[in-house]
């Protein structure tokens, strides 16, 4: 089957490793006999939600984020209805902030958001930088290991669900022990490190949800050899435990 991916603003939101995330999705899809078709959607391009199963938004530096924000906000209705329709969203770092209601950046400029995630972000003075490890209660306590580097402090609405609980690291704001945000099939996170290579279970979750969006029925993915992935995960998790959030 073809899994149809819209990679939003790849030339602007690509601060680190976003290509890695896409490569992992493509390879793991292929290993199960599926193909990932990635379409770049950039400033001013037409976007038909009937064409896509999964939307990917990477992170950008402030300057690039400003260029993207208004174009993205114009698509808010389209993107929200795509989500209501069961499409999958993965938004990392700057993309996560813009998938919320908005972001006040370091220069005090208010950037509009899509409003798909119940979250708001305001830039803080000190950047939160370091290794991070999360536990995802919604996924039987599976862990996500990554790296965060953000000035934004993200506040979730009351009752909104984070992507994970912070075991080590800063997370959304360095205080609440919440990291990221999850609504339906939309996932936002500050884990900008190559999130998917070292967290293959999460990559598979996105793929099966994207397949389900297309076929309307649950799809089980066969297991593949993840020895290297698991080893990389362990090293990254260890890094977060010893030096995350400091």
């Amino acid at each position: 089957m073809n899994i149809r991916v819209a990679h939003l603003y790849p030339e602007l939101l690509n601060i680190y490793a976003d290509r890695g995330n896409i490569a992992v999705l493509a390879t793991r899809a292929q290993a199960r006999g599926h193909a990932l078709h990635v379409t770049a959607i950039t400033l001013g391009d037409r976007l038909d939600p009937a064409d896509f199963d999964l939307y990917y938004l990477g992170g950008g530096q402030d300057r690039e984020q400003q260029l993207v924000a208004s174009d993205l906000a114009r698509r808010a209705t389209t993107l929200r209805s795509a989500h209501d329709d069961g499409a999958v969203f993965l938004a990392v770092c700057g993309g996560y902030q813009l998938l919320g209601r908005g972001y006040r950046d370091t220069s005090g400029v208010d950037l509009p958001g899509v409003g798909l995630l119940p979250a708001e972000t305001v830039a803080g003075t000190r950047r939160l930088i370091g290794d991070v490890l999360l536990s995802c209660d919604w996924a039987e306590g599976s862990t996500l290991a990554g790296f965060e580097n953000h000035a934004g402090r993200t506040t979730l609405d009351a009752g909104a669900e984070p992507l994970g609980r912070v075991i080590a690291g800063y997370g959304n704001d360095g205080e609440s022990h919440a990291e990221g945000c999850r609504v339906g099939r939309a996932y936002g996170t500050y884990l900008h490190g190559p999130l998917l290579p070292r967290n293959p279970w999460f990559a598979d979750r996105l793929l099966s949800e994207a397949l389900e969006h297309q076929t309307g029925r649950p799809i089980e993915l066969s297991p593949i050899d993840d020895t290297l992935e698991r080893a990389a995960h362990e090293v990254a998790a260890g890094r977060a435990r010893t030096r995350g959030g400091r």
Partner: peptide, 23 residues
């Protein structure tokens, strides 16, 4: 190096067969 696995993964995704990578 201390992040050898991460590098090995990068090359695996660059198309190098995992049998050819030693950590």
């Amino acid at each position: 190096g201390s992040r050898a696995e991460e590098l090995a993964l990068r090359f695996a995704y660059a198309g190098l067969h995992r049998d050819r990578i030693e950590v």
